[in-house]
Amino acid sequence: MGEEIKGPTPKLAMIFQDFALYPWLTALENVELALIHRKDISKEVRREIAAKYLELVGLGGFEDYYPRELSGGMKQRVAIARALAAQPIVLLMDEPFANLDAITAEGLRSEIYNMVFSEESTVKAIVMVSHNLEEVVELSDKVIVLGGRPASIIAEVEIKLPRPRNTRDVEFQDYLDRLYSLLSISLRT
């Protein structure tokens, strides 16, 4: 903490739009990848930790499945487990729900908060990029609106809603409207 970050580090874990799972490794092996750079733990311990994180994301029993045998939502859960296993402080998410169908995405969204900020997790903050404003309002504490070319910060919006958030709340809709109008202004200018 407090040091300058110069290159990729496991302390900043990334979740990709296309999941980025290694197709020739099983779910468990994919999660184990996150621990390979740690010389202080044995192979057995590594497997145990990986299994624990798979359990955490609700994939206990799917350890030996290859990515191609998992559904989109399950793949993204494996990716989340892998990111968490690296014990990051910050999680970067690049449109993590973009490649999922609407219903799966909604389910995963409502769970991800509890998964990422559970007791086992070391994550202190998440930076998420998204074009889906409903998703943004549902998950974020602070929204930074980017626009223009080259992109620059147009506005910062703090979302002060209690969790879990309900998309049908009037306040939720107010936030949504505000973000939409901010974006449409940025498109016009």
Binding site: T9, F16, L33, A34, H37
Partner: peptide, 12 residues
């Protein structure tokens, strides 16, 4: 993205 993961997880 698979290369990025490898970088991110600091694989040798």
């Amino acid at each position: 993205s698979l290369w990025d993961v490898a970088e991110n997880l600091r694989l040798g």
